[in-house]
Design a protein around this nucleic acid. Structure first.
Length: 464
RNA sequence: GUCCCGUUCGUCUAGAGGCCUAGGACACCGGGUUUUCAUCCCGGCAACAGGGGUUCGACUCCCCUACGGGAUGCCA
């Protein structure tokens, strides 16, 4: 049995797209579970749209999320000779021909065909002209006119295409550069790729590429065409719908493992299991089980999975993941006197690391804004009285710990016959600006005595 | 237009002819726990696109229609 080699072949015309990550993931997992190799190839034959910046973004993004290739990525732009040699081979074999149709001619032909209700395609008019290569000729593949091509797809089974539906595609442009189809086929062969796992949008390209393989005498490949990742309107996911770049999701505080989990679970499932780590995917993923229909990318599922992955992190790892997000808002985690207690108390306060970092602000920085609704609801004259009373009580407290604080609050509340929220909410507002926080004794402890007293004073002053 | 692929709850999916009173998860709604928020627990809502076959029996097989997507580039 031949070694399984898969490849992810992005063109560097944009940052790494979340759909691309999924394609890369499936390629990666399929390779790993078959003890094979995962390769990356940069398809930068479009000089106008490809940039080095995008290429770097894609490569960095892939390795940052753990989908590193097993060999150094190759660039098609540096392999021109190889493609030209392949083209020469096709010319020599008589399976290609030169065509001098101008773009205008082609456009006109297409228009006529469309008007006649036909599929627009090159009609092969130059095929038997015996044209020589010249400045404005392109090399076309002489595609068989009869018969059919059967694409054996791991996900879709056998898909049949009539050769009569296919036109003679361009292999070499008039400037002599090779086109996508040629490069793609040649590189898959040169890189010993065994299995092509790519988006469904390439399914109808496949018979064309098989013809190139045949013309070149290459062995056939295994294919798997993945359903597309869609936006809520069922069109392929784009910037219109949501963030599409991997880096944006990472910047929002989604864990790599949660992103991969979400993407892996999009179009594939295993029993009732929802949480998968890479090792689970490698163990359980089965390409034959991949769904055929496109799947809508649902951010709420990502949110939930992120919270699951976050809660599976031990304290140390959690902290390390969180630190960059705190730094982002100029918070140094070491400025707190008990980070472990703080983080334990706050780790489920949001689904994302960025969200958690934001929730952590009051434990490092002064409160700038108060929830006005909460103030009007909880702080009336009696609320002011309570704030003043507690400022007094708390400033006299010698043992500033959770238990003591809870006791102090409780006895004040019962002695004065107040309800619990009546006492606690005003303090919460003073400490955090809102009514959201861990249990109050713990919150007071985490904010610290001096800060707590200062904030009580500040709120009292601002309201009197 | 033509070719190709597809169609189960709002979303991701389970379902390989009787196990389906169509299961799970997310979301949503309700309840409980929590002094608040979040977590957590319990409960609820909610789908086989439509029509024909085949069969004793169809979500499952076949055909048609509808709808969606993709491809139809000297882009990849």
């Amino acid at each position: 049995m031949t070694k399984v080699i898969t490849r992810f072949a992005p063109s560097p015309t944009g940052t790494l797209h979340i759909g691309g990550v999924r394609t890369a993931l499936f390629n990666y997992v399929y390779a790993k579970q078959n003890d094979g190799l995962f390769l990356v190839r940069i398809e930068d034959t479009d000089k106008d749209r490809s940039t080095k910046e995008f290429e770097k973004n894609i490569l960095d993004s892939l390795s940052s999320i753990g989908l590193s290739p097993d060999k150094e990525p190759i660039n098609q732009s540096e392999r021109n000779d190889i493609y030209v040699a392949a083209a020469e081979k096709i010319i020599a074999s008589g399976k290609g021909y030169w065509c001098d149709c101008s773009k205008e001619t082609l456009d006109e032909m297409r228009k006529d065909q469309e008007a006649a209700g036909k599929k627009p395609m090159y009609d092969g008019r130059s095929r038997n002209l015996g044209l020589e290569r010249s400045e404005n000729t392109v090399l076309r593949l002489a595609t068989p006119e009869d018969g059919e091509i059967v694409v054996k797809d791991l996900i879709r089974g056998e898909v049949m295409f009539q050769n009569s539906e296919l036109d003679d595609l361009i292999l070499l442009r008039s400037d002599g550069t090779p086109t996508y189809h040629l490069c793609n086929v040649v590189d898959d062969y040169e890189q010993n790729v065994s299995t092509v796992i790519r988006g469904e949008d390439h399914l109808s390209n496949t018979p064309r590429q098989i013809h190139i393989q045949n013309a070149l005498g290459y062995p056939s490949l295994e294919y798997a065409h993945l359903p597309l990742v869609l936006g809520p309107d069922k069109k392929r996911l784009s910037k219109r719908h949501a963030a599409t770049s991997l880096e944006e999701y990472k910047a929002e505080g989604y864990l790599d493992s949660a992103i991969l989990n979400t993407l892996g679970r999009l179009g594939w499932s295993k029993g009732d299991q929802e949480v998968f780590y890479m090792k689970d995917l490698i163990k359980n993923f089965n390409i034959h089980e991949v769904q055929k229909a496109g799947a809508i990318f649902d951010i709420t599922k990502l949110d939930w999975l992120n919270s699951q992955h976050l809660s599976n992190l031990n304290l140390e790892d959690f902290k390390n993941h969180l630190i960059p997000f705190l730094e982002e808002i100029s918070i140094d985690i070491n400025d707190h006197f008990n980070t472990d207690a703080l983080i334990n108390a706050m780790k489920s306060s949001s689904n994302t690391l960025q969200g958690i970092a934001t929730e952590l602000r009051p434990y490092f920085l002064d409160v700038e804004n108060y929830d006005q609704k909460a103030i009007s609801k909880f702080i009336d004259d009696k609320g002011m009285q309570i704030l003043n009373d507690l400022l007094d009580i708390l400033s006299k407290l010698t043992q500033w710990d959770e238990n003591n604080l809870d006791h102090a609050l409780k006895s004040y509340q019962t002695e004065n016959n107040y309800s619990v929220p009546q006492v606690n909410q005003p303090i919460r507002i003073a400490l955090t600006g809102s009514t959201k926080s861990p249990s109050l004794g713990l919150t007071l402890y985490l904010v610290g005595q001096k800060n707590s007293l200062d904030r009580l004073t500040k709120l009292i002053n601002s309201l009197s």
